[in-house]
Each structure stands twice: as structure tokens, then as C-alpha cells.
Design a binder for these strands. Structure first.
Lengths: 139, 139
DNA sequence: CTTGACCCTGGAGTTAGCTCCAAGGTTTAT
DNA sequence: ATAAACCTTGGAGCTAACTCCAGGGTCAAG
């Protein structure tokens, strides 16, 4: 059995974060000592890893909780899990596209500025940001 | 002169947001009426557009305030502005890469699951998330 | 037996960019 | 004249995933 500090060390995470996971219903101690210390089994180590890897895939804690609940639910099947993954991938793709759009807009500004030797008063970047639309004229 | 409501309409933004920009030092009314109503000039319309376009490029309000300050500063030159844009583009690129990494991790999970006909107990996705490293064996 | 390391609970604070509200004063239209 | 629409300030609340703290109890080593 591990105390919270040992589990924290094993997972390279803070004890505060572990207690936070508990409040969020993601990680329950196996038991408590008479004096109220949390005790965790080896499954807690795996659980922490699960949470961390799912976070690294972009899942929020609320979504991770759902994934964990799916495992409990015997009517659920692997396909349900797979759907969550696919859905999350779509969300990521949308965010990536949004950021690529931003990046492209920046690119146009950077190119407009060319060498940047002008004074700020005539900076094409600042000027472009005030323009009604970033786009081109109708052809 | 525009009241805050008119400016809000012109910029498709809420009056609350405009007042928030004021608190953040991004947008000051040109004057106030005797009864305390804010009054804005046409430059405010351009200013709001500036803020919105800069946001669409990924700049935070704090960064936008800096851009605006650069314009005031006569020692600053266009190159300073350009540098901010380049810097922001790098930040975006880093975020995009992070999300692509997430997406790739999800892809491996989705592929591992293949058709998803298994029960949750033997779901390869859930299993993989508990694994020590998502990576492959040494060859 | 004391020192230091550990643990507990409960609650506040962080970041960003707002939104929403109350309680009241002002303007405009009818 | 009065109702509707507008404006003011100040402050609270929202999201996410924590962190940090106070004030106190517990445990292990020397």
C-alpha cells in the first residue's frame, strides 16, 4: 500500500493533484488508515498513468472520468471508447485548423512588412490590423 | 461621436467587452458626457477592429496592448512589430505540433482498436492508456 | 522526546476574456 | 408624462486543472 506521497512520487505528480483527482471522482484511495491517511494499491499507479496518458491525448478530466465509467459499464463496448477517441481527434483537427488559419494570417502580415525598416507610423502590420477585412479585393 | 452601444454594434461586440477593454487599457473613450456616458470617435471603431484582428492572429489582450504601446513609442520601429508577429507564429507552431502529437497518439489508439467489437474489458485503447509507455519495444 | 517529514481538511487564488447582475441615473420616443 | 431603451459603477461568476495556504494531527528516526 502506498501513501499519497509515495503515489505522487511514483507518478511524478503533486499530492494536491491526486487529491484533486479524488474530488473529481477519478481516483479513490483503496482505504484509509485510522488516522485518516489515504492508502493506495498498485492499481492506483496504473490509474494515474491512465489519466496522464489520456491528458496527453487531449482529453479533459471530465472526459477521462467518462472513459473510466465506460469501463465499469458492461453494456458499453470497446466501440464506445473508440468513438470518444475519434471524436477527440476531430476536435483536435478543428483546433489545429484554427491555429493554422491564425498562422497564415500572421504570415501575410510578416510578408507585408518585408524588412521592417519603416517607422511604426507606417508599419504595414499595424495598418493591416486596422483594415476592414484582412482579405483581398474582389477580382 | 458614438455611445458605447453604437460602437458595440459597429464592432459586433458587447458593451461589456468594450468596458473590459477599457479596464485593460486597450480602448479609452474620447470623452464623456456630463452625465458620464462614454463617447467614442471613429478611431475607436478602428481600434476595435485592430483588437479583433489581432485576436484572430492569436495575440492575447496583454500582447495587443503591447502592440498598441509600440505605436506610441517613437523609438520603436516596424521591426519590433514584425518580431512580435514572428514570435507569435513560433508559439502557434509549437502549439500546433503539440496537438499533432496528441492526434498521432489518438491515431495509434484508434488503429489498435481496429473494429471495436470487443467488450470494454479487453479494449485495447483502455489497456494502452494504462501502459507504462505508449511507445514501441526496442527492436 | 523531540524534530522533521509527512498527512489531513477546507477554502482561496491563479489565468483569460469575458458575461451577468443589481441598483440606479439618462435619453428618446410616443 | 411615461415607458422603453439606454447608460453608469462595482462586483461576482464562469472554465480547467490545478496550486498554495493555514491550522492542525501523525509518524519515524535518533
Amino acid at each position: 500500500m502506498l501513501t499519497i506521497g509515495k503515489l505522487a512520487q511514483a507518478g511524478s505528480i503533486s499530492t494536491d493533484a491526486l487529491r484533486y483527482y479524488e474530488r473529481e471522482g477519478l481516483l479513490l484511495p483503496a482505504s484509509k488508515t485510522d488516522s485518516g491517511y489515504r492508502l493506495y494499491g498498485q492499481d492506483a499507479v496504473r490509474r494515474v498513468r491512465f489519466i496522464q496518458h489520456a491528458q496527453a491525448c487531449g482529453f479533459t478530466l471530465a472526459e477521462i472520468r467518462e472513459l473510466l465509467h465506460l469501463r465499469q459499464n458492461d453494456r458499453a463496448c470497446c466501440n464506445d471508447v473508440r468513438q470518444r477517441a475519434i471524436e477527440k481527434k476531430l476536435q483536435l483537427a478543428a483546433k489545429i485548423r484554427a491555429m493554422q488559419t491564425m498562422s497564415a494570417a500572421l504570415d501575410r502580415l510578416i510578408v507585408a512588412c518585408a524588412d521592417g525598416t519603416q517607422s511604426v507610423d507606417e508599419c504595414p502590420i499595424l495598418a493591416a490590423l486596422e483594415q476592414v477585412e484582412g482579405g483581398e479585393e474582389a477580382p
